[in-house]
Design a protein around this nucleic acid. Structure first.
Length: 270
DNA sequence: CTAAGGACCTGTCGGC
DNA sequence: TGCCGACAGGTCCTTA
């Protein structure tokens, strides 16, 4: 479900319900996520006031005195604010119960998500080697050109590499490359500097626009406020293989790159 | 070092 | 209707 826009939508949706409030209890029904939830996490959080709810890449950081809970939604995770005590369904793995009578509930059918602990003044190893935020100035044409130099990897695979830039998942990689007019299969090192400059602009535009729209709801994604995302209406290639290009009318093609579905217009993208 | 593939897990969908 | 394989928003880890 979540790429950066969906994570940011979730973060923004839950933050007002959490910040400034005290954690009454952490209820863990299923600790086996991608990594086990640390046994001492409840002790780290209970009784503490939540200071901030931030985001780094696709991680949500819920900070309290002493550290931060790191939350990753994986492929199928989502969070919602509910009244404390709402009945739990099959994949409702964790509740962060607040002293307000509300709780944050984590649901994740595939359990590729994670809930970990990062002590204050330490950088969790999962965050240590992440690339820059795509919407920051640090992610610019010059930077991407350096990343691509000499690389034979397909440009799409490269922009999805979180060590180089975070937050660009399969949907938005497809969309950004369409907007930039670049064939996703093209070796990164063989994309001209000018077109990489364009790609940076397109990645930023697509992500920013998707955040404005509350993310992309494919199946049942809803933000922390329970509303679906509306960006799906603006998708040009993702999920549209065999349909007509919105720009030139050609039939969109599909290939696999790094085992991910890749859709592009053979006429507009070179 | 880079690149490619498998692994993790459950639900859904299309085909027979 | 039922079964089986393929596929799904991520990304770490192993292997070559």
């Amino acid at each position: 479900m979540p790429e950066l826009p969906e994570v940011e939508t979730s973060r923004a949706g839950i933050a007002p319900h959490l910040v400034g409030h005290r954690v009454a209890r952490l209820v863990i029904r299923q600790p086996q996520l991608r990594w086990p939830i640390p046994a001492n996490l409840a002790l780290c959080l209970e009784g503490k006031v939540i200071r901030s709810v931030a985001r780094r890449g696709k991680y949500i950081l819920i900070s309290v005195e002493g550290g931060a809970a790191l939350l990753h939604l994986g492929m199928s995770g989502s969070v919602r604010i509910l009244p404390a005590g709402a009945p739990a369904a099959k994949h409702d793995h964790v509740d962060l119960v607040l002293d307000t009578g509300s709780m944050l509930r984590l649901t994740d059918p595939r359990r590729f998500g994670a809930l970990l602990w990062q002590p204050e003044n330490e950088l969790h190893s999962l965050l240590a080697s992440l690339g820059p935020e795509p919407l920051s100035d640090e992610f610019n044409a010059e930077y991407l050109q350096t990343c691509c130099k000499g690389r034979k990897t397909a440009i799409k695979t490269l922009i999805m590499n979180s060590q180089l830039v975070v937050g660009v998942g399969n949907i938005y990689a497809n969309e950004a490359l369409f907007q930039a007019g670049i064939d996703p299969r093209r070796a990164a090192g063989r994309v001209s500097a000018q077109r990489l400059e364009q790609l940076v602009i397109c990645i930023k535009q697509v992500l920013a626009r998707a955040i404005e729209q509350g993310g992309t709801t494919l199946r049942d994604f809803v933000g922390g406020d329970g509303k679906p995302g509306y960006f799906k209406q603006e998708l040009h290639v993702y999920g549209r293989a065999g349909e007509l290009c919105h720009s030139c009318g050609s039939i969109l093609k599909e290939v696999r790159l790094g085992q991910r579905s890749t859709v592009y217009c053979p006429s507009c993208q070179r």
